[in-house]
Design a protein around this nucleic acid. Structure first.
Lengths: 219, 219
DNA sequence: CGCCCAGGTGGCACGATGTGCCATAAAGGC
DNA sequence: GCCTTTATGGCACATCGTGCCACCTGGGCG
């Protein structure tokens, strides 16, 4: 199903590159239009036109109008999961999560270019999320999928015999921490490398605040 | 009408009762149809017809086709939040959460009739959720709203001066625990009063597993 | 180089979604 | 009993998302 036999991991075969380019183009324009007018104020036709494709083609790339922005929202997720799976065994689970966050989100890290490129578009989009039901829905769906993808990674990371239910809970909690970190960051104007209010710093603070919050005694 | 003088806000005022009845009727049929054919296999027209109202009226009660089932999904939430807000001050946060869960979900509790009535419809619906993108979206939206509603309750419950960010994280974690408890319960055929696999028991186990999962050392 | 064909693209029609507008009938206040 | 309020139904309409077909481009092959 992977199309014509790829001789190598050589090059993406011009057509493939055009497809990837078109997808990025659609996503970019969708994000811009959604940020400015809200999802309800933009038609699929409008996005398609801005991206220079027909309406029919638009729906070949994305199942719904709103899905068009998912590429921007899933930006760092893949790297995060990969870095998490590769965490040194001597780290505790919390430490491993922090380690992965730093690796995936720190501007000095290996994914710097990838991030900074789309980071501002993503922030603009996230700022529109709270007040836009349709965008909110996409945002939640993206995180639901991340949570699902997180479970097998944590399973291999945790010690054997850990309850599946516990793993699922851990995945949900960690994922929620990441989500809230992103939402909080979007609400600020902090530079990506801000050591106090940048994405990485916020994510780490959220991961730590998670366990703290449930344990602090009441007044 | 020469009936007994109507105390202003006492009586639900016949019309109100009919509206509530219609809403329940729509929700019931929507849940049944969605459970059987999936959200994509049911038209708004079909739901309206089954509930005995016109299509136009259907959309006066619910903004979208999928929203029609939210009344069933938000069933216990209001009670849970109320019980949580009324938790004795000497309980820790985790204990308060457990206390509220028991009060709202235990079959012996004060909300028994309300629960058992719709509990089976809800379970049928939840079983369809994982494989149905549209239903999944509603399920996530409901929990996102619960999470939001949870924050002010926790704020008043926690000791003064607690970081807003920490409160939000706690709300998200507790809410995720409830969600996963419901999803897990829906996957079983346990009786509602099962002391091991019932909703209340599962919810408590999830709340505890939450803090445990993040702290256990690795192999 | 030219043929061929797999597959990306566009146009069109169509069922379905969700909303605005107006007419009607029933409920509640006087 | 009259009058205002409001829930409801019917209709038209823009938009959504999909199936189908016709076109054309690019990439392999003789």
């Amino acid at each position: 199903m992977t199309g014509p036999s790829l001789p190598r991991h050589q090059r993406p075969s011009l057509t493939e590159r055009r497809k990837a380019e078109t997808e990025r183009e659609i996503a970019r324009h969708a994000a811009e239009l959604f940020s400015e007018h809200g999802a309800a104020g933009v038609t699929a036709e409008g996005i398609a036109q801005a991206a220079g494709v027909s309406l029919r083609t638009f729906y070949r790339y994305f199942r719904t109008k709103e899905e068009a922005v998912t590429p921007l929202l899933t930006g760092g997720v893949r790297q995060w999961l990969a870095d998490l799976a590769a965490a040194p065994a001597e780290l505790s689970l919390t430490q491993a999560l922090e380690h992965a966050v730093r690796a995936a989100l720190t501007p000095d890290g290996p994914y710097a270019e990838l991030q900074t490129e789309a980071l501002e578009s993503t922030r603009g989009l996230l700022r529109a999320v709270p007040g836009d039901p349709a965008l909110r829905s996409v945002w939640l769906r993206v995180h639901a999928e991340t949570e699902e993808a997180l479970v097998p990674v944590l399973t291999r990371l945790a010690r054997e015999g850990t309850e599946p239910l516990e793993l699922r809970l851990t995945a949900a909690a960690a994922n929620a921490a990441m989500r809230i970190a992103m939402e909080t960051w979007a609400g600020t104007d902090a530079e990506p490398d801000d050591p106090e209010r940048g994405p990485a710093a916020l994510a780490v603070r959220c991961l730590r605040g998670l366990t703290a919050g449930l344990h602090t005694p009441r007044a």
